[in-house]
Design a protein around this nucleic acid. Structure first.
Lengths: 239, 239
DNA sequence: CGTAGTTTTGAGAGGCGTCAAGGAGCGTGG
DNA sequence: CCACGCTCCTTGACGCCTCTCAAAACTACG
């Protein structure tokens, strides 16, 4: 075991209500502990895995912040998601036993390593866990569909507003402020995720500031008017 | 059992190498037959299910062609996928026990009904089936990511070229021509899927015809130059 | 304190949306 | 069998949103 991995236990993890163990009873938790035996630390900027690597494990974000992105042969790049505490990374690797995207830590991070074979084994034993694995994958599918909606039918300001609301909501669910957040990603990464150029992201931020909807100092964002953001998202003009 | 449902067996289905039973041995197939007991016919234009309905079953397309789409409160609409023979519909419903999209038949169709609880039960018994269910969900996630790439970073002609190549490739895998296809969806539905207006879809078709890359008569499309389409997709100018 | 990376802002161009009109194909009914 | 209406598709003109290119300011970090 290398120096960056450590022993841990789900049963004593304060994230268990947010993470894979959600809803498991104590005896199931014990079993899960035997599977999810290690954590791994990832430095800011380093990869948890890269596209093309063999898939063996899912990862639960214990702390820190990740992006996943795909790159095509001709150099196109698309951020497919940002993952925070309690979220699961690596589901894309199951289908071909190869990771199909890169997972990069946007700040120093720690993940719980879950060998997928053992997760499968255990979920044959515990209906609860089986359900949960299915739900996690289904949730990812539904999330992706809503991103497709965003990319396919929204204009720049609507996209960014939706993005900010989504981030704030997820952070709030983790005990942080509803209205204040620190972006872990660059304007370019936001742009890649939202299908717009970094200049457009920046301009749209400026416009929101001008309209007194948010306050921005670098990566720090204060949402001054959540309802205004919601109105922007639902501004039917569409596209 | 209503008149539109009929008894069937996976073991005698000529799609079993394309569909859920892929890779199962004869005895496992028998078991699966006991689960997937019925088919259901859907008339062109009718819904297999609608968003908000209770989720209980997955569906395998036996024949025909479907679209899935989500609609927001403010009337935005996004086609999230087109499904053909052997493909699975309904995975989005697992997470909340509610369907999150509409599934509409674009031509008279027939699906195999698979009560999800029984699929789960059986996949606790058969590792093969469990693997397969996981792979199907993972495949959907990977597919969605590539659509995000398309929507986020491609221009209109690149999107349509990628779309045509993808359709042709899937049809080819089902024994149809690589170069000739009949679209089952309208220009508007293509546009919704690809994040562009129907007029732009139509114009882009016309441009491809002008460039002698394809031939179009209504819904019929003949791909005259596959390599040219590939070049269009990979035209780095990007966006 | 210098350098690299990130962000902001401006000016100009072009791709795609919008609005509008006309045409083609198909099902229905007389 | 033909006429009619509906839906779907095509094409044109115009304008706007977002991209592109460019330069400067700011921050972080060594």
């Amino acid at each position: 075991m290398d120096i960056n991995t450590v022993k841990v236990a789900c049963s004593s993890c304060n994230l268990r209500e947010l993470c894979l163990p959600m809803g498991l009873n104590p005896s199931e938790l014990d079993k899960l502990d035997s599977v999810i035996s290690t954590r791994r630390r990832i430095k800011r900027g380093a990869a948890l895995f890269n596209a093309g690597e063999k898939f063996t494990c899912l990862y639960a974000v214990r702390s820190g912040f990740f992006k996943t992105s795909i790159t095509t042969a001709d150099g196109r790049d698309q951020v497919t998601g940002f993952q925070m505490t309690g979220e699961i990374i690596g589901l894309d690797g199951i289908v071909n036993d190869l990771h199909s995207c890169d997972a990069i830590a946007l700040e120093d991070a720690e993940v719980c390593v879950m060998p997928f074979e053992q997760v499968e084994e255990l979920s044959r034993e515990f209906t609860t866990l089986q359900h949960h694995v299915h739900k996690i994958m289904s949730r990812e599918i539904v999330r992706d569909h809503s991103v497709m909606l965003l990319l396919g039918s929204m204009r720049a300001d609507e996209r960014l507003a939706a993005f900010l609301l989504n981030l704030a909501q997820r952070l709030h669910a983790r005990g942080f402020s509803q209205s204040e957040l620190v972006l872990r990603m660059t304007r370019e990464e936001i742009g890649s995720y939202l299908g717009m150029k970094l200049e457009t992201v920046s301009r749209t931020f400026s416009k929101f500031v001008e309209d007194d909807v948010i306050e921005v100092r670098q990566r720090y964002v204060h949402i001054k008017n959540t309802d205004a953001l919601r109105l922007i998202v639902n501004a039917t003009p569409g596209r």
